Simulated scan of single mutants.
Amino acid sequence: MFSPYYKRSGRGDPINHSSLNVALYGPQARWAMTERGRGAVERDAGNLVIGPSAVRWDGEALTIDIHEQDKRLFNPFQRKVAGRVRVFPEALNRVAFALDAQENHIWHCLAPRARIEVEMDEPGISWSGKAYLDHNRGSEPLEQGFNTWHWSRAHLKDGALVCYEGERGDGSLFASALRFDANGVPEPVDLPPIAALPPSRWRVERRTRSDIGVAEVRRTWEDTPFYARSELASRFAGEEVVAVQESLDMRRFSSPLVQFMLPYRMPRKG
């Protein structure tokens, strides 16, 4: 959905603009998002192949085999990004939600709770921990449907909580909070108070929700001209939690400067 090549093409053939995005943070950070054409893509009900990388579902885990190269802005030297990620859902949710009245944009939280195993060969790091899996799809460009959005998610002792809010392209506002129980069943709950966050280094406006109207940015993992992803210390449903939060500004994304920069970050092969 962020592909400059797909946008220029008129967005008529999405399979011809496929990529696997890998973002590793920390001392051995890597970024990979190489777009590939239709000839490099294969898929069926349980498998998706994009170039040398593949994703498969075996009924128990989602396995992601990664064979990519990183791309740093204005840096010609690429490093390998290779390894395997396995995501084991602890609960599956079958209900999808429309983010607009016309149902042009659909969000589906597939696994509100999951565990993850990461074994990377390049760079040589591994870990296991908590995870989350969702899916977005739409029938119109994202920048047409939205100006901004803010999303956050936290594991709870029994289930998970997801907050979603923003401004649609027509200027209308939306906001919701969903609590998922231990079986993945969603239930709308009252929105916690707004907790303002400092803007990112690129001055992207950030926002989240918290029981006490206060949250702390512990780390900002991704900081770009139109998108920020962060780790927060917050409070949901009476629990002290570590939350993942993202903010997106599609007006920034649509600017000529960002569109000029994107191919340097997201090369295309084929």
Rank of each mutant, 00 (worst) to 15 (best):
A61N: 11
I50S: 05
S53G: 06
L62C: 08
L24H: 01
M33Y: 07
T34S: 13
G59M: 11
R56Y: 07
S53V: 03
G26R: 02
T63M: 06
I50R: 06
H67V: 14
A54K: 09
V41Y: 02
A32R: 04
Q69T: 15
D58N: 15
P52Q: 14
W57H: 07
V41F: 03
R43T: 13
H67Q: 15
T63P: 08
Q69V: 15
W31Y: 15
R56L: 05
A29I: 03
G59I: 10
P52F: 01
L48A: 00
N47C: 03
V22Y: 02
D65C: 12
M33E: 08
P27C: 04
W57R: 06
S53N: 03
N21W: 12
W57T: 04
V41G: 02
R36Q: 14
A40R: 15
M33F: 12
R56A: 00
A23G: 09
G26S: 08
A61S: 15
G46R: 12
E42Q: 07
E60P: 05
L48P: 01
E60L: 14
R43Q: 14
V49C: 07
S19V: 04
A45I: 05
W31K: 02
G39E: 13
E35F: 07
L20S: 00
L62V: 14
Y25V: 09
W31L: 13
Q69L: 15
R56P: 03
L62Y: 08
R36G: 06
L48C: 04
A32W: 04
L62W: 10
G59A: 12
Q69R: 14
A61W: 10
W31Q: 11
Y25L: 06
G46H: 13
I50G: 02
A23P: 00
W31A: 05
R43I: 08
R30L: 08
A32L: 09
G46C: 14
V55C: 12
V22D: 02
A23L: 11
D58G: 06
A54M: 11
R56Q: 08
A45L: 11
R30D: 03
R30V: 07
G37C: 11
E68I: 09
W57F: 11
I64C: 12
L20M: 10
I66K: 06
V49R: 07
E35T: 14
L62E: 06
E68V: 09
R56T: 04
G37M: 10
G51H: 05
G37V: 08
I50W: 01
G37R: 04
L20Y: 03
G39H: 13
V49E: 00
R38A: 15
P27A: 06
G51W: 03
Q69F: 13
R36W: 07
P27Y: 02
A29W: 06
A54I: 05
H67E: 15
V55Q: 06
V55Y: 05
A54S: 15
G39M: 10
R30E: 01
E68N: 11
N47H: 11
